[in-house]
Design a protein around this nucleic acid. Structure first.
Lengths: 116, 116
DNA sequence: TCCATTATTCAATGAAACTCGAAATATGCC
DNA sequence: GGCATATTTCGAGTTTCATTGAATAATGGA
């Protein structure tokens, strides 16, 4: 991931409703959810939700597929992992002396992320 | 980390110059860099840089300390790790069937992040 | 074909963010 | 005190984003 893609992904996530929608899709997993269900869970009017989902889609954070009349949105795992990798890349210039500061498992991740 | 803090952190990072400044500080490590050096590296006028550094500071992503006439900015490891943890939390609802999609090491992190 | 369902596009409005020169503040040295 | 250095604050202009009702597609069933 390059800087421009990272900014696009971060901008997409940097909004209350979009982050909520994205988290919902992350927790749901690859099966995804129809736009209507997301709108209902988030309490947003359809046009507003579309606006936000398009932002996530354009940033490559989610995927879109049609199933009958519904359009299913799902997380795009590679994008999330790429973003996380970009943020932590070359942390401390790779010096071992400050490696603990760069380790997600050591500092601020008590809940079940990838390791759980 | 709660949703509001995550949005604040993501908003702070969701800008070309701020992300560049933050990445510079991540690569530099705990020693940090004076504002002037950051401005020079990024090619920004001082007042613009201050605007962006304040955004990172307010979001808790960086720390600030004065050393003589210089103000040194440094990354705040806990904030970065907390953000990463928030993004990946409860991925796939914790089901093992899609765990690989939630593992940063498996999908999109070829470069030396925490594991390197 | 006609209708119901699901979702997107359009358009207008209001709100917030970014930029940066000039002025002000804080510190150190002589 | 007087001056140079380092950074922040202020202010005005420009740009971009967010919201949402109404209209428009796309699909499936009777």
């Amino acid at each position: 991931m390059d800087a421009a893609s990272a900014v696009a992904a971060l901008s997409a996530l940097a909004h209350e409703h979009r982050l909520a929608a994205y988290r919902l899709l992350v927790e749901t997993g690859p099966d995804g959810l129809p736009a209507g269900v997301i709108a209902e869970r988030l309490g947003l009017p359809p046009s507003s939700l579309t606006f936000h989902l398009q932002a996530l889609l354009h940033a490559g954070l989610v995927t879109q597929r049609r199933v009958s009349r519904q359009i299913i949105y799902a997380m795009a795992p590679a994008a999330m992992n790429g973003l996380v990798a970009y943020l932590t890349e070359h942390c401390c210039g790779g010096r071992a002396s400050c490696a603990p500061a760069c380790d997600p498992a050591a500092a601020g991740a008590p809940e079940g992320a990838s390791a759980a």
